[in-house]
């Protein structure tokens, strides 16, 4: 299959690669860039484990071809902490609220949570739950995730350090 060239930015680094047109963005991230922090949990766009940001908004990277990301700016879970390693407020909130157990849904969940918090800084529980509907977790029963999203959103709105995407959305 003839490969197509793409150029994009991932977690602040520019890449130019040749990819098969059928390569999903998540396959490109994991297999070509080694961004294994982003995970694959299903093949029907239901679970959200592969959620990343494209130009500052959450998308499911299993539902997009790598060629469609050509010219765009992608952020994965590996790119949300500050350069000095300070956790993103949402990462910190997930830790503080015990919002993860096995951790497999966590990267996608955090990426979606940042998006929710950006759009709804004061989201009530119902709003958070509705906006997490596309991200499945089998361990936590979501209660602590909801708590974390609200806590993280408050921190993000407070403008504390670590939010590398503050101006992106």
């Amino acid at each position: 299959m003839a490969k197509k060239p793409i150029s994009l930015t991932v977690d602040g680094v520019s890449y130019t690669d040749d990819v098969e047109p059928r390569t999903l963005l998540v396959q490109y991230l994991r297999e070509q860039l080694g961004k294994t922090g982003t995970l694959v949990g299903c093949d029907t766009t239901n679970c959200g484990a592969c959620t990343v940001h494209l130009d500052g908004r959450s998308i499911k990277s299993c539902t997009m071809f790598a060629v469609q990301a050509d010219g765009h700016d992608v952020t994965t879970i590996e790119g949300v902490a500050a350069a000095d390693g300070t956790l993103h407020p949402m990462q910190q909130a997930f830790h503080e609220c015990h919002a993860l157990q096995c951790g497999f849904c966590t990267p996608g969940m955090i990426m979606q949570a940042i998006d929710v918090a950006t759009e709804h800084p004061d989201a009530d529980e119902a709003t958070v739950r509705e906006n997490l509907e596309g991200n499945l977790c089998r361990c936590t029963g979501y209660q602590n995730i909801v708590k974390a999203v609200q806590a993280g959103a408050r921190e993000m709105a407070g403008g504390t350090s670590g939010d590398t995407e503050a101006g992106a959305a």
């Binding site: 994991r30 922090g37 879970i77 590996e78 990462q91 830790h95 503080e96 951790g103 497999f104």
Partner: peptide, 21 residues
Amino acid sequence: RRRKEDQRLITGRSRYTDNMV
């Protein structure tokens, strides 16, 4: 106690089997 396990999992430094190359 907040979990020791969390740091690698919330930052994407996880080592699930499919990550192995």
